[in-house]
């Protein structure tokens, strides 16, 4: 009996898992490099409109302004659409100073090519948007990008 058992022992050798950490580390580094942490928490509802004539955005020279109704967590601020910059609600009058400050925080050689990314909820009134644009003109930040989702072609 024992003769047969001895033969069984020479089965497949265990697969070496020594290189497993290397593979995992490789993936880990990829995701660490590719990760962009969200830099501001949204305090508003933000469902973007969609468009099909979109261009790509250069993130390094962009300042984001958000607008929309306060989200469920911030109900105490009412139902009127609000403007958000970084992590706080601002009023229309504050847009100009906030944007100028944002521009000053940018890399120096990008300051002249700044783009304002407007992430605005699609239910917002266009009047608020034109107020923001008026303030941007005062701040002399004239390039705006209306951030939108890419619309799939309806054929």
């Amino acid at each position: 009996m024992s003769k047969f058992r001895k033969k069984d022992k020479g089965g497949l050798p265990a697969i070496s898992t020594a290189s497993l950490p290397d593979i995992v580390f490789m993936l880990l580094f990829f995701f660490m490099v590719a990760t962009v942490m969200r830099d501001s928490t949204l305090m508003i509802e933000n469902r973007l409109p969609s468009a099909d004539q979109v261009e790509k955005l250069k993130k390094d020279r962009t300042i984001f302004i958000y607008a929309g109704k306060p989200s469920d967590l911030y109900k105490q601020f009412g139902k009127e659409p609000r403007i958000q910059f970084n992590d706080a609600y601002i009023t229309v009058e504050d847009v100009q100073s906030s944007v100028i400050q944002g521009i000053n925080d940018l890399n120096e050689d990008l300051q002249s090519r700044v783009v304002i990314g407007l992430k605005i909820d699609k239910e917002t009134n266009a009047g608020l948007v034109s107020d923001i644009k008026q303030e941007l003109r005062k701040a002399n930040a004239l390039k705006v990008m209306y951030i939108a989702n890419t619309k799939t072609d309806k054929l």
């Binding site: 995701f31 979109v54 261009e55 962009t62 705006v144 990008m145």
Partner: peptide, 24 residues
Amino acid sequence: LLIFFLVTTTIEKDKGLLRSLPPI
């Protein structure tokens, strides 16, 4: 660590309509 980064990653690419405002 890998799973942590997998979960927190949002590879987002913002797109939109680029327009210029008239200067004041």
